[in-house]
Design a protein around this nucleic acid. Sequence first.
DNA 1: ACATTGACTTTGTCGGACAAAGGGACAAGC
DNA 2: GCTTGTCCCTTTGTCCGACAAAGTCAATGT
Lengths: 256, 256
Amino acid sequence: MVAALERFDKIEVASAYQLVADAIEREIMSGRMRPGDSVGTEAALCAQFGVNRSTVREAIRVLEQSGLVRRGADRRLYASLPRYSGLSSRISRALILHEVTFRELWATARVLEIAAAEQAAENADAAIIALLEANQAQAEAALDDPARLSHLDTEFHQLLAKATRNRVLELAREPAGLLFFPTTELIVRRVPEGAGRLVAAHRHLIDALKAGDAAQAALWMSRHIADWRKGFERAGRDLDEPVERVYARSVLRPPY
Amino acid sequence: MVAALERFDKIEVASAYQLVADAIEREIMSGRMRPGDSVGTEAALCAQFGVNRSTVREAIRVLEQSGLVRRGADRRLYASLPRYSGLSSRISRALILHEVTFRELWATARVLEIAAAEQAAENADAAIIALLEANQAQAEAALDDPARLSHLDTEFHQLLAKATRNRVLELAREPAGLLFFPTTELIVRRVPEGAGRLVAAHRHLIDALKAGDAAQAALWMSRHIADWRKGFERAGRDLDEPVERVYARSVLRPPY
DNA sequence: ACATTGACTTTGTCGGACAAAGGGACAAGC
DNA sequence: GCTTGTCCCTTTGTCCGACAAAGTCAATGT
């Protein structure tokens, strides 16, 4: 049975827990309630909204999940700034379920990482460069430990993104990065010179950052990413494969 | 009272609703449960997990919020692919709360939109170009309606991203786009030639896509984005302002 | 002054309850 | 034949009341 005319919009009836969640969300988004402020106890919310505690608790789950509300160490409810990491890992999960290919991942990571390198060269300060150097030192000591090297590589690119002082870029690159860089482990395992080329590229990137040379940073990042692709193919993989669900494990439960 | 030794890790006790949510999440992520499959009724889940219905319902809120589970038209629970739009709008919300600046937004949108233009030129098919042409026709008819033009501009860039056939890029650009393009309304309201330059740039972009000319597409996107910045400044705004909470409204409740 | 105790609060979970809405079967009416 | 109305059953959304565990806080004892 199909409607003869599409004359009316679908009527949407909001459930109580949704209304409660929306109300609290508005309170936070509008700035009337600031991150860190206490949201009040469940009982207090019951009283204010005139609904049952079960209803309030369902609303809290929604808000908790979107990161607007958090339970403190004392288990009480506080308004909170949504953290990036939680969002990124959920996006990565979505990408896995949509079975995106390594080609899509690569093409996107390429532009984002090159942009990150350029902007990092313009904005990096001494503190973040020190962190990059520390990462690099550990990587040079882990040339024959693929798992560790891959983890350090992921961290290197996260630090580089932070060095841009561009939080939008930092967030935009993370979902792809979470899926992209773990494959480094596979590559350095299969391609003998992979580890050496990786730390060499990182070295040049750090030097470019120190010199504030955006063009040089972009160049070496471009080579670094091209290397990844060559290594991926030399390891016998096809760019048009979808990202395996296996990677979900490295993304599902970020080690908070 | 402080622990004498940090001998043990903090013991993390997962609550029942979290365990239930995790179990169902694993079922979906592992592929044992596929999008579209029925998850079963609340009562059935109670029986399987041996917990109370309130507990099951809290778990469901968590899964619903992360998009892994959806209520069908019949209100039953089905496994589901997380939709991009929901994720993007939550990220945009986070960016607002973190008070990112228009400069961060602009610098990120710039690289993402240029990359989208290039990849769209390589991958666009006739169907999506037809949609872009339709959008363009409406825009040309709405030159003196800033609100509508701004909406069409947002849509144009979404279509362009879809034309790349790169879902990772499509998702990566959306959060910034959601916050970036609505300001078009302000700009065409304040800058007389703004509307004309906007549709002209879109015209050149469509032509470049038809010709499969990535360089030309990148060039015109670059000009288009540069125009935005000039317009923003000519409208008397400062790039280093944080994005106002006002924009939350255009993002909070995406018109599903 | 400091550790202990015990009362009070809050959360996590449970059991049971009911109205409203959807689905299906079946009879009545055009 | 197809629609409409009706009845029944399932499922969801919400509510009530309850209790154990864990945290808070103030009074207590030494």
